[in-house]
Design a protein around this nucleic acid. Sequence first.
DNA 1: ATCAAAAGCTTCAACCTTGAAGTTTTAAGC
DNA 2: GCTTAAAACTTCAAGGTTGAAGCTTTTGAT
Lengths: 148, 148
Amino acid sequence: MNAESKVRLRLWLRLLRATRAIEVRVRERLRVEHGATLPRFDVLATLARAEEGLILSELSERLMVSNGNLTGIVDRLEADGLIDRRRRNGDRRTSFVSLSEEGQAVFERMAAEHERWIDELLADVEAEEAERLSTRLDGLLAQVEAHS
Amino acid sequence: MNAESKVRLRLWLRLLRATRAIEVRVRERLRVEHGATLPRFDVLATLARAEEGLILSELSERLMVSNGNLTGIVDRLEADGLIDRRRRNGDRRTSFVSLSEEGQAVFERMAAEHERWIDELLADVEAEEAERLSTRLDGLLAQVEAHS
DNA sequence: ATCAAAAGCTTCAACCTTGAAGTTTTAAGC
DNA sequence: GCTTAAAACTTCAAGGTTGAAGCTTTTGAT
């Protein structure tokens, strides 16, 4: 293995560690302050960004999780009254999902706090630096996704 | 919420997406080519780096997962003969864990491929760029960990 | 119109993950 | 020495996660 591969490997390990560190803290907060989990929050956030709603498979693609996984999470969110589920375009295969009124309200409260937590956690990252890093991670994502 | 917090939020979201994208691909490869999972690989990798071995709680801290979680993973790795478990310093509370000979061999094979996969996935990231990003993520991790 | 293939879900078993509660063992204070 | 606190695990229930297998519905090719 050449030296470049070591450097890339290190990048991947750091990426994973940094992400996990933040993830652990966000999970904890979501649980303690909202009785929520990260996957549930992610689903609500993705729906909130989608305006109209999404079919399940679109949701699973955006979240990068399996379809089977989403079935369960969405089941529970629906049971809790946070999302609505209906058919789309008369296609009887699809499950079109959107935020309920309550889901919208609940999400907005969580999202505002979530933004605050991240702002606190990353307080020492200058805006410019954050911008730069974001751009690079975006590029990185694009490259990774180009591989199949 | 001010503009800076939006930028930081975006950074976090990008971090998460990039990490997940890589993670999904690594998981798939580990499964298909080695019948392994990421958590198992992570445990082996951490032990391989530790030379002597580690007690469970040290392992859980490094991996940023709960103690209860590790019990199960380590149970299965032990059952598969990849790791050894014994007492340390006569302390009968601790579970001191290390790679078995087979575990060492299995890990080395996986690690070499893992490095290759990452090298392929991140092929378009220049070494210098990777270096820079790593350093920044390291700083970011330190800042996050400073928050409790 | 027919029928094979694809799309969209759901179900399932196995594993991962968590935090809370409980057990055993060690350390600390008196 | 005794007793309380702390440390290190394990167990457990609930939820998340996956890929494989299976079901229904739609699409596309003929």
